[in-house]
Amino acid sequence: FACQWLNAHFEVNPDCSVSRAEMYSEYLSTCSKLARGGILTSTGFYKCLRTVFPNHTVKRVEDSSSNGQAHIHVVGVKRR
């Protein structure tokens, strides 16, 4: 389900990036709304992400508004 969900909601775009945590959060929200069992852990979800978008990269984005915490963004992917 996770791989199908990724294909339905995201697409390849080399000029874009999406927060990896936001992607997983949206996946969890969809699973909750659909009352799905067998929800992937974040590790399983990221493995699926690598399968669906094998050419993506990740980058660390520093967020000055959150006490220097960094966010991981998936580069080469955008929301549909």
Results as ranks from 00 to 15, higher is better:
Ser32Lys: 14
Asn7Asp: 07
Phe1Arg: 15
Glu62Val: 08
Leu49Ser: 01
Asn67Ser: 06
Val52Ala: 14
Asn13Asp: 11
Gly44Ile: 04
Glu22Ala: 12
Asn67Arg: 12
Arg36Phe: 06
His9Glu: 15
Arg36Leu: 10
Ser29Val: 07
Ser42Cys: 02
Glu62Leu: 09
Ala21Pro: 11
Ser66Glu: 15
Arg50Ala: 13
Ala70Tyr: 05
Val52Lys: 06
Ser42Glu: 08
Met23Arg: 00
Ile72Gln: 14
Ser65Leu: 05
His56Thr: 12
Arg50Lys: 07
Ile39Arg: 12
Glu22Lys: 04
Thr41Gly: 10
Leu34Val: 12
Gly38Thr: 13
Tyr27Glu: 00
Gly44Leu: 09
Glu11Asp: 05
Val74Ile: 10
Leu40Asp: 02
Asp63Gln: 15
Val75Phe: 11
Glu11Val: 08
Ser65His: 13
Asn55Trp: 13
Arg36Thr: 08
Val18Thr: 08
Ser17Asp: 03
Val12Thr: 15
Asn67Ala: 15
Glu22Arg: 08
Gln69Asn: 15
Thr30Cys: 02
Ala21Leu: 14
Val74Leu: 10
Ser42Arg: 03
Thr43Asn: 05
Lys47Ile: 04
Arg36Asp: 15
Gly44Pro: 08
Glu22Val: 08
Thr41Phe: 04
Thr30Ser: 14
Ser29Leu: 10
Phe1Gln: 08
Ser29Lys: 14
Gly37Met: 02
Thr41Ser: 14
Cys3Phe: 11
Cys3Ile: 05
Ala8Ile: 06
Cys48Gln: 12
Gly76Phe: 01
Gly76Ala: 03
Ser25Leu: 05
Gly38Ala: 08
Ser42Phe: 12
His73Trp: 12
Gly76Lys: 01
Phe1Tyr: 01
Arg60Trp: 13
His73Tyr: 13
Cys16Ile: 15
Ser42Ala: 11
Glu26Thr: 05
Val61Gln: 14
Ala21Cys: 14
Glu62Tyr: 05
Arg60Tyr: 05
Val74Lys: 01
Thr30Phe: 09
Thr51Ile: 06
Gly44Glu: 12
Leu34Trp: 10
Trp5Ala: 00
Ser32Trp: 04
Ala35Met: 06
Asn13Pro: 00
Tyr27Asp: 01
Glu11Pro: 00
Val18His: 15
Gly76Trp: 01
Ser17Leu: 06
Ala70Lys: 12
Val12Ala: 10
Gln4Ser: 13
Asp63Thr: 06
Val18Trp: 02
Arg50Trp: 12
Lys59Ser: 13
Val74Cys: 04
Arg36Ser: 13
Arg20Phe: 03
Gly37Thr: 09
Tyr24His: 01
Gly76Met: 05
Asn55Gln: 03
Phe10Leu: 04
Phe10His: 00
Lys33Val: 10
Ala2Arg: 00
Leu49Gln: 01
Ser17Pro: 01
Leu40Tyr: 02
Thr57Gly: 13
Val75Asp: 13
Val58Pro: 06
Gly37Trp: 06
Ser64Gln: 08
Lys47Leu: 06
Ser17His: 02
Leu40Pro: 06
Phe1Leu: 03
Cys31Glu: 14
Cys48Pro: 01
Phe1Thr: 02
Val52Thr: 05
Trp5Gln: 00
Val75Ser: 08
Gly38His: 05
Lys33Cys: 04
Pro54Lys: 05
Glu26Asn: 03
Glu11Arg: 04
Arg50Asn: 14
Leu49Phe: 11
Leu28Ile: 09
His56Gly: 09
Ser65Met: 06
Val52Glu: 12
Ala2Val: 12
Ile72Met: 11
Thr51Lys: 02
Val77Trp: 00
Ser65Thr: 08
Asp15Ile: 15
Val77Arg: 00
Arg60Gln: 06
His73Thr: 11
Val18Ala: 08
Glu62Thr: 10
Gly76Asp: 03
Tyr24Val: 02
Phe1Trp: 03
Val75Gly: 15
Gly76Pro: 01
Thr51Arg: 12
Ala2Glu: 07
Val61Phe: 11
Ser19Cys: 08
His9Gln: 08
Val61Cys: 11
Asn55Ala: 11
Glu62Cys: 07
Cys31Asn: 10
Gly38Asn: 08
Ser42Leu: 09
Val12Glu: 09
Gly76Cys: 02
Val75Gln: 11
Lys59Arg: 15
Phe53Pro: 00
Cys48Ala: 05
Phe53Tyr: 15
Lys59His: 07
His9Cys: 04
Ser29Ile: 07
Val61Leu: 08
Leu34Tyr: 12
Gly68Arg: 11
Lys33Trp: 03
Ala70Gly: 08
Lys47Arg: 04
Asn55Glu: 13
Asn13Ile: 06
Ser25Asn: 03
Arg36Trp: 06
Arg60Cys: 04
Asp63His: 07
Pro14Lys: 03
Thr51Glu: 04
Asn13Arg: 09
Asp63Val: 10
Thr51Ser: 15
Lys33Ser: 11
Cys3His: 04
Ser65Glu: 07
Val18Asn: 06
His71Thr: 15
Gln4Thr: 12
Val75Lys: 02
Ser65Gln: 14
Val18Glu: 12
Asn13Leu: 07
Arg60Asp: 04
Ser25Ile: 02
Val18Leu: 08
Ser42Pro: 04
Ala70Ile: 11
Ser42Met: 12
Met23Asp: 00
Ser19Met: 09
Ser29Tyr: 05
Val58Ile: 02
Ile39Thr: 15
Asp15Phe: 02
Tyr46Ala: 12
Glu26Trp: 07
His71Tyr: 15
Asn67Trp: 11
Leu49Trp: 01
Cys48Trp: 02
Ala35Pro: 10
Gln4Arg: 12
His71Gln: 14
Gly38Cys: 07
Trp5Cys: 00
His73Gln: 04
Val18Gly: 02
His9Pro: 00
Cys16Gln: 11
Asn55Val: 10
Ser64Ala: 04
Gln4Cys: 09
Ile72Glu: 14
Glu26Pro: 00
Arg60Val: 11
Asn67Thr: 15
Ser25Phe: 03
Gly38Val: 14
Tyr46Lys: 14
Cys3Met: 02
Phe45Ala: 00
Gly76Leu: 01
His56Leu: 11
Gly38Asp: 09
Cys16Ala: 14
Thr43Ser: 01
Tyr27Cys: 00
Phe53Leu: 01
Lys47Asn: 13
Thr51Asp: 09
His9Arg: 08
Asp15Asn: 01
His73Ile: 06
Gly68Gln: 09
His73Gly: 07
Thr41Glu: 06
Val18Ile: 13
Leu28Asn: 10
Ser66Cys: 07
Asn7Ala: 03
Ala35Tyr: 06
Ala2His: 15
Gly37Arg: 10
Ala2Leu: 12
Ala35Leu: 08
Val61Glu: 09
His9Phe: 14
Val12Trp: 09
Met23His: 01
Gly44Tyr: 07
Phe10Pro: 00
Phe53Gln: 00
Leu34Ser: 10
Ala35Ser: 09
Met23Phe: 12
Pro54Asn: 03
Lys59Glu: 15
Val52His: 05
Gly37Ala: 10
Arg50His: 15
Tyr24Ile: 03
Leu40Arg: 09
Thr30His: 11
Ile72Phe: 14
Val77Gly: 00
Leu34Gly: 14
Gly38Glu: 15
Cys16Lys: 10
Val61Tyr: 15
Pro14Ile: 03
Asn13Met: 06
Leu28Glu: 14
Gln4Glu: 15
Gly68Met: 11
Ala2Thr: 13
Thr57Gln: 08
Val61Pro: 07
Lys33Leu: 09
Gly37Ile: 08
Asn7Glu: 10
Gly76Arg: 02
Glu22Thr: 09
Arg20Cys: 06
Phe45Tyr: 01
Ala35Glu: 13
Lys59Trp: 05
Ala8Cys: 05
Trp5Phe: 11
Asn7Arg: 08
Gln4Lys: 11
Val75Pro: 00
Val61Asp: 04
Lys47Trp: 06
Asp15Thr: 05
Arg20Asp: 03
Ile39His: 07
Phe1Gly: 10
Val52Gln: 11
His56Tyr: 03
His71Ala: 13
Ala2Gly: 08
Tyr46His: 09
Met23Leu: 07
Tyr46Met: 06
Val12Cys: 08
